[in-house]
Design a protein around this nucleic acid. Sequence first.
DNA 1: AATTTAAATTGATAAATGTCAATCTAAATT
DNA 2: AATTTAGATTGACATTTATCAATTTAAATT
Lengths: 230, 230
Amino acid sequence: MEFHKTLDCSTCSMASPVFCFLNHQEVAKIDDNRIEVSFNPGDTIMKSGTPKTHVMSFYQGLAKVTLEGKDGKNFILDFIRPQTFFSGPGFFFDNKHYLTITAVEPCKVCLIDMDIFFQMMKDNFEMAFAFMENSNKFIMNLIHKMESLLIKHHHGRVAESLLYLSGVIYQSNPFNMSISRKDLSDLTALPKESVSRILQEFKNEGIINMKDNTVHILKEDSLMQISQNG
Amino acid sequence: MEFHKTLDCSTCSMASPVFCFLNHQEVAKIDDNRIEVSFNPGDTIMKSGTPKTHVMSFYQGLAKVTLEGKDGKNFILDFIRPQTFFSGPGFFFDNKHYLTITAVEPCKVCLIDMDIFFQMMKDNFEMAFAFMENSNKFIMNLIHKMESLLIKHHHGRVAESLLYLSGVIYQSNPFNMSISRKDLSDLTALPKESVSRILQEFKNEGIINMKDNTVHILKEDSLMQISQNG
DNA sequence: AATTTAAATTGATAAATGTCAATCTAAATT
DNA sequence: AATTTAGATTGACATTTATCAATTTAAATT
């Protein structure tokens, strides 16, 4: 971890849309009340159950947002890429974390004092509204995720995840999957054995190719169909 | 439906906590820009996909919040009882409904013009914050629901639902279940046949009693244990 | 490079689960 | 009250799915 700052809010191009309605004074105040933190893969960025003191601007790397269930079962609700603003549902409520965020690739974030951010929303309704929009998008993600998990069968879930990883998270087609099979298992809410099997099936059917964590989607149409109907 | 008003905001005791920070002027403004609507069981209060023009204060009856999936599969995310404020995740985003709300028992609601409510949040940050707290509670409900559905087996889900209906929704122990088996099926994300079977099992094991839609929980401890471990 | 550790794959099996069809019950309509 | 309709229950079956154990592969450590 580094405690000196390498960025300047006034020139930062990595800020989330939540911050785009601030005037110079407000930007300066954010700058004075933030800390930059780096995380290595596997590091916990936010831990469910702990007190919530900051909101987060995620500006580098890849992280996973996890719901910790019982018996050590975890569910990945989403992956985070820059630029993302994250406060979490405990904000305004009991100021605790309800989700765990873990670095998958090396990450850099700015942590902004929650009270400062809170006060700023009082004076700047545009930021407050941008914050609310951000919350609502999070809700819609959750709803979509829920729908997928409830409706789709195993093959469909894996197909959807591969398309999501390639299209949204890694944004390339032969993509190097930096997440583990366990992560894929937590993302699809499937036992890791099932994930292995299904990936193997996709490979045998010529839908994808796999080698050394590099996945190549060969028949995107087939995957989309499996994702829809499976 | 009745188009004349029977209530007065300034003396209304059925308002959600979201409205508790308003001054006289603001209360009057809400009063001028709301309509009272009654719904019969089965009526659609809000329909997914339609434009969103109002926020809702739910002050009488029982309704279900449904996520419409593919192939006519529906999932009940929650039931609504007074007093509940509901805006929905489309607010601030594309102003469409993403969830469907349907009356289960006769319902009465106030629909408040969305733009008026929006403007009022600009001037009254306390209401805006109460609104945000409401949103975050909704998120936490969703997360809890998701966890249950992902972790628990069929018996556990039915057990949890019975406890929820008795404890939260109907607030009595021998309770008259105004929701249908199909609703119970949509709530637990289980085929209705499975719901029937499991209820019957619970009955045979002396955990509950059932007659004419009246359900009596006899062994709450057993149900709680099944809900936890099942 | 050798050894150890962890992760991923594969196979076999038992259990859970969804679907179809048929029966039964209750409610609604005439 | 008789008829119709919708909803709920039950049974049987095929399929899906989770779990355990064993093997293989890859990564990390010495």
